[in-house]
Design a protein around this nucleic acid. Structure first.
Length: 704
DNA sequence: GGCATGTGTATTTTT
DNA sequence: TACACATGCC
């Protein structure tokens, strides 16, 4: 065939891949070759003469963008230099705003803050406006961020959002509104954008008369993956990006929409033909991934959904046996069995990388991680806590952030409180002396009052600092001067020349910061050596970057996964098992999939079952998890959950099987119930020598 | 004004 | 249950 990028596609897939101009909606069920189709489509466009850098591919994670572009390159070898714009909505927004931001009077040195930073800023404002010390508890800072974010992303009024999603906060409405006002103003004064701003400003850019059109027309084709998990604001952006040129392809599956907490709505995919008239619709229903038995069980779960939009998937794959539902005595036995099954498949020739353990929340894998580490089974965990959220990482980054954006109050605040004898109060006073702007809600000036930045101010003169902090503070000023490529001025107001060329390279700056921070780290936290290793890891990442700005933004927009101290950094060639939250598993597939903690309260999560929509979304979550499996699917249900961890006795409660595993669903599984002797015998049978945990055996003495 | 202790509360999933 | 927040002591 003369078009290798279309080889092996079915008629429907080919129809989607070769669609000409105008809007295209691909409704693609799980495992129907969606990625394959999208990749082929991009290759087809390029082969047809579209310049790669005039193609924008919006994906859910940076990882999937990179993977897809890699596959396109393999299909179109001529495309060596790359050039296709790929990434998340947020990363793309950041990139476009760095180019076109002038039109919105966006300062060129803006930095991006993550959700935790946003929470801290909300907390600061909440306290300053006097909402922290009332008789009644005012809405907390994390909740404030959630409400704010949901309001912005859903493009609804605050009243609406409160009534519908946060009814228990509705009585604080006026206070919330005041805090939001101050929050918006302060971000502006400090040259910072939060996640939502990235989208909001991109949207505003689209609407700008001249630049908007220029920006939009820069792209001949826009393609969006996982469209079912976009929110109204993102839909608006797409509309703004496609006013004159309507080449827009979106791919999604309403049965896999699992991000409503981010204001994603399935309406986007359902209303696509209305929003973009003359849209061509292609539906992919044939599943190429899973065996018939796995698909049958997955379909059975979805059959009970309250609302269904697509038909059942079908497959012609046979064999592989029924999926296995194992009822375990407790989490410990579940862990034993998972490890046993994994090793069995490994012996049978399925590499660890082809196997995954999926779970609802990050900490559900805690016991398993310990067991894996003990048996020297390498693993890589996706989802859960990011190491970027660790205090020592945030501390270190605060220095870089201030160097990049001297108006960044939160980072200043964080840094100042690292010194002995400086707490919140003193830190706030020093912030004032340095002239860090706080917006007009407080009387401080705005960014450019006296033409000098807070950083220049710090280097020009030492603020009043309590005695215990003084030695370190002097060192701090020298360190910051080094990193900024400046000198400490002796005469006040005598600011040294900019001298950009004297700014040391990023790794050198980071080295300098680490040296300064090391004693602080061991004074502030207990397990300093572990943290020090994390910082080495951070330095390692930094070597890949030329610019400080892109290092900082990339870390917030695309944070590396948690480096669990138990998991030894796996080398690239080395085989390792995948542990993942179900959310992070979206779009992936494995030969063998293990779903653990299929108990009510886990799947569905206790937190999610407050309303029917939540219960339905959790159902889709289980469906997503199940449809990741190609050949073998195991679901585990621990009967008992212990309340106390290390105490004597066995206070426990009995769990219910996940409500989605109804009898008709279970009938599609091979059911196994252990009788308390599962671990040891199995291991001997399959010839795997696994050390037995003495503590586990000990516990059996009083819990069996 | 910093820092430790005690009480109360949210508690998930990700950019 | 762990963590954040607020009060009280140094």
């Amino acid at each position: 065939m003369s078009e290798p990028w279309l080889e092996g596609l079915t008629a429907t897939q080919r129809e989607a891949a070769t669609h000409g101009k105008g809007p295209l909606l691909i409704v693609a069920g799980a495992g129907t070759g969606k990625t394959r189709t999208l990749v082929s489509r991009v290759a087809h466009l390029i082969a047809g003469g579209v310049a790669p850098d005039r193609i924008l591919l919006l994906t859910f994670t940076r990882r999937s963008a990179a993977e897809m572009i890699g596959r396109v390159k393999r299909l179109v070898p001529a495309l060596s230099g790359g050039g296709v714009w790929g990434g998340t909505f947020h990363a793309t927004a950041n990139r476009l705003l760095r180019i076109y931001g002038d039109a919105l009077r966006l300062p060129p040195d803006f930095t991006v803050m993550d959700e935790a930073d946003a929470g801290d800023m909300m907390g600061l404002i909440r306290a300053e406006l006097g909402f922290a010390s009332g008789k009644k508890r005012f809405v907390g800072k994390q909740s404030l961020v959630k409400i704010y974010s949901h309001t912005v992303n859903a493009q609804r009024s605050l009243d609406d959002t409160l009534a519908r999603y946060f009814p228990w906060c509705a009585e604080d409405r006026d206070g919330i509104a005041r805090i939001f006002d101050a929050y918006v103003e302060r971000k502006q004064a400090q040259h910072v954008l939060d996640y939502d701003d990235l989208l909001l400003f991109w949207g505003a850019l689209c609407a700008a008369p001249r630049v908007g059109v220029t920006m939009a027309n820069r792209f001949e084709h826009v393609l969006v993956d996982e469209y079912q998990d976009t929110n109204p604001l993102q839909a608006d952006i797409l509309r703004g990006m496609r006013r004159e040129c309507t080449n827009l392809s979106v791919v999604g599956d309403d049965a896999q929409s699992i991000y409503s907490f981010r204001a994603a709505t399935v309406r986007n995919i359902l209303d696509f033909p209305t929003m973009f008239p003359n849209a061509h619709v292609v539906t992919l229903e044939r599943n190429y991934r899973s065996t018939a038995a796995i698909l049958d069980a997955s379909n059975a779960v979805m059959a009970r959904a309250k609302e269904r939009y697509t038909k059942d998937l079908f497959t012609e794959r046979t064999g592989g046996g029924k999926p296995v539902l194992t009822t375990c005595r407790d989490e410990e036995e579940q862990t034993d069995l998972v490890v046993t099954h994994i090793l069995e498949h490994l012996e049978a020739g399925v590499a660890l990388m082809r196997q995954a353990v999926l779970f609802r929340t990050g900490h559900h894998s805690a016991m398993l991680e310990i067991a894996l580490a003990r048996r020297n089974i390498p693993f890589h965990k996706y989802g859960g806590l990011k190491f970027i959220e660790a205090a020592h990482i945030k501390d270190t980054l605060a220095f870089l952030r201030v160097l990049e954006n001297p108006y960044d109050e939160l980072s200043w605040f964080r840094i100042l409180q690292m010194f002995e004898g400086i707490g919140a109060r003193t830190a706030r006073r020093i912030l004032g002396e340095l002239g860090v702007p706080r917006g007009s809600a407080t009387t401080n000036g705005t960014a450019s009052t006296n033409g000098t930045t807070p950083l220049a101010g710090l280097l020009a003169r030492t603020p009043r600092v309590p005695a215990p902090a003084q030695p370190a503070f002097g060192e701090f000023r020298r360190m910051m001067a080094d990193c900024a490529g400046r000198r400490i001025a002796d005469a006040a107001g005598d600011e040294p020349p900019e001298g950009e060329d004297r700014v040391p390279p990023l790794p050198v700056q980071l080295e300098r910061i680490r040296a300064f921070y090391a004693p602080i780290c061991s004074r502030l936290y207990d397990n300093a050596p572990v943290r020090e290793r994390d910082l080495e890891h951070l330095a390692q990442i930094a070597t890949r970057y030329r610019s400080r700005a892109s290092f900082i933004t990339d870390l917030t927009l695309d944070p590396p996964n948690s480096t669990s101290d138990l998991a030894q950094e796996p080398y690239l060639e080395e085989d390792y098992l995948i542990l993942s939250t179900i959310h992070s598993a979206k779009g992936c597939e494995w030969d063998v999939v293990h779903i653990i903690h299929a108990a009510d309260g886990m799947i569905p999560s206790d937190m999610a079952i407050t309303d029917e929509a939540g219960v339905e979304e959790e159902r889709r979550l289980l469906y997503v998890a199940m449809t990741r499996a190609k050949d073998h699917l195991y679901i585990y249900f621990p009967l008992r959950y212990y309340h106390t961890k290390h105490r004597r006795g066995d206070r426990h409660s009995y769990a219910q099987r996940s409500r989605y595993l109804t009898d008709d669903v279970v009938a599609r599984f091979e059911q196994r119930t252990t009788n308390g002797t599962a671990g040891g015998d199995d291991r001997q049978q399959c010839g795997v020598s696994a050390p037995i945990d003495p503590r586990g055996d000990l516990r059996r003495l009083w819990s069996g």
